[in-house]
Simulated assay, not measured.
Amino acid sequence: MPLSLPADPPTARSLTGVVPDMLAALSGRSPSLKPARSAVLMVVDGLGRLNLSARAGHARFLSGRMTKKDHARTVFPSTTATALTSLLTGTDAGEHGIVGYRVRIPGTHDAPNQLKGWETHGLDPLTWQRALPLLEREALDGRPVFVVSRPGYAGTGFTRAIQRGAQFVGADSLDDRVETAAALTGSHDNALVYLYTPELDATGHAHGWESDAWSDRLEAVDAAARRLEQLMPADVGALLTADHGMVDVPRHRQVLLGEGDALVEDVEIVAGEPRMLHLYTAADASGAVRDRWERAEGQRSWVLTRGEAIEAGLFGTSVAPEVAERIGDVLVAARAGIAYYDDREADKKAQNMVGQHGSLTDQERLVPLIRLGAFAPEA
């Protein structure tokens, strides 16, 4: 392979270990978190550690609380569906099966969106996502478990796939979600509360993380985190983390795949997402497709066959056979500031996105892991 893949440091913390560590802290057994009576996991979709550091002046509270050790690495691909599933099951994609944003249902030509395709393509939340959700496990053991999120997410296939077992509490605004999460920890002992905010990610996709709009939204997140700590009882701990970071890709950096392009020759489905493509090829064509992509794009993207990706451990140390069938025959993960689009698709709205993620770069994979409340380090 001409380009070696980036390797995680041996001591790197994985997003898969965050919830188990919090649960250990509730029984006083965590190696890294102080004991707490209850805990809040605040997930800020799209808040990469490097993005946060670059805009520290717009997040003085969080930046002031973030030490050099306060970070983790999200999973691959660095996309919401995969990362949130890994966070809330404690497993990598090779085990839970959510291997990207859009992936093919084996034996078909359908490649549904893994956030919304549960409804449109009949994906079964109890079987397509293969791992036991940690929230369900804890609820069955008698722990009070809550999800505080936007009301529209209640009862969706993705919510059922990764958050079943928890009591869902909907709140429209971030301020209301913060107040609700804090109140739940005040009224329930030994509770775990998952608090989700998608607003920063949406702003980043629409305007880019380097935009004024993103900085304004970050200030609101910073204020919300401060307020959460103020409202929580003193014996409650909180962790703030994210599913992925973000890279801005302006229009002139988009790579458009058009009719007759050699890069789509023998490719039956272009799926995944713009910075991490799953290419599903015609029978026995994966080697030729990989070679064409390597020659054309190898200087600015990592190009691997399915087997190479599995052998490299990108989807975890173990990949179940039925999960392997969902992975593209060829994977293309951008390392430069580019994004790939299938320009043959009729709906081109996705090409309006500025902020992107999904690949292996530190900007996409490093996320903050900031300790608040009872979890905060000694001053």
Rank of each mutant, 00 (worst) to 15 (best):
V75G: 11
F76P: 13
A56R: 15
R65V: 10
H109P: 00
L47S: 01
P77G: 10
N51K: 00
A93H: 03
S78M: 02
R49I: 03
P77D: 14
G107A: 11
A72G: 04
T89Q: 02
A54N: 10
P112L: 10
L84F: 01
D45N: 13
L84M: 03
V99Q: 05
G97Y: 01
G107N: 01
L52N: 05
E95I: 08
F61I: 09
M66R: 10
I98D: 06
K116L: 11
A59R: 00
L50N: 12
G100T: 12
P112T: 09
S78E: 04
F76S: 09
V99T: 13
L47T: 05
V103A: 12
G90Y: 01
L84H: 02
N51E: 05
V75Y: 13
T89V: 07
G64H: 12
G90K: 04
L115M: 11
P77W: 03
L88H: 07
R102F: 10
G94V: 04
Q114N: 14
T79Y: 04
K68G: 05
G57F: 13
G97S: 02
L52S: 08
A93C: 05
K69H: 04
A72Q: 07
A83W: 04
N51W: 01
K116D: 05
G107F: 01
G107Q: 03
A56Y: 09
V103E: 09
D45P: 07
T82I: 13
L50S: 06
G48Y: 05
L47H: 06
P77F: 07
D45E: 13
E95T: 14
V103G: 04
G94S: 00
G94Q: 03
S63G: 14
T91V: 00
T85S: 01
P112Q: 12
D70S: 15
S86W: 13
T74K: 13
M66W: 11
A83R: 09
L84Y: 03
L62E: 12
Y101M: 15
L52A: 08
T85H: 00
F61H: 11
T74C: 14
D92H: 15
L62F: 12
I105D: 09
V75W: 14
E95V: 11
G48V: 03
R102A: 05
L84I: 03
G107I: 03
L52W: 00
G64Q: 10
L52I: 00
A81C: 12
L87V: 02
R60W: 08
T67F: 00
V103L: 12
S86E: 07
T80S: 15
H71F: 15
L50P: 08
D92Q: 10
R55Q: 14
S63A: 12
L47Y: 01
T74N: 12
A59E: 00
M66H: 13
P106S: 02
F76L: 10
T80Y: 12
S53Y: 06
G107W: 02
T67L: 04
G97N: 06
V75C: 07
L88M: 13
L52F: 01
H58T: 01
L52Q: 04
I98Y: 07
V99H: 06
P106A: 06
T67Q: 04
T79W: 13
G48H: 03
V99L: 10
V75K: 08
G100I: 11
G46T: 11
I98P: 02
D70H: 14
G57V: 12
S86H: 15
S63H: 12
S78L: 07
K68A: 14
A56M: 05
Q114Y: 06
S53N: 15
R55G: 06
G57C: 15
S63C: 09
T85A: 01
K69M: 04
V103I: 10
I105T: 07
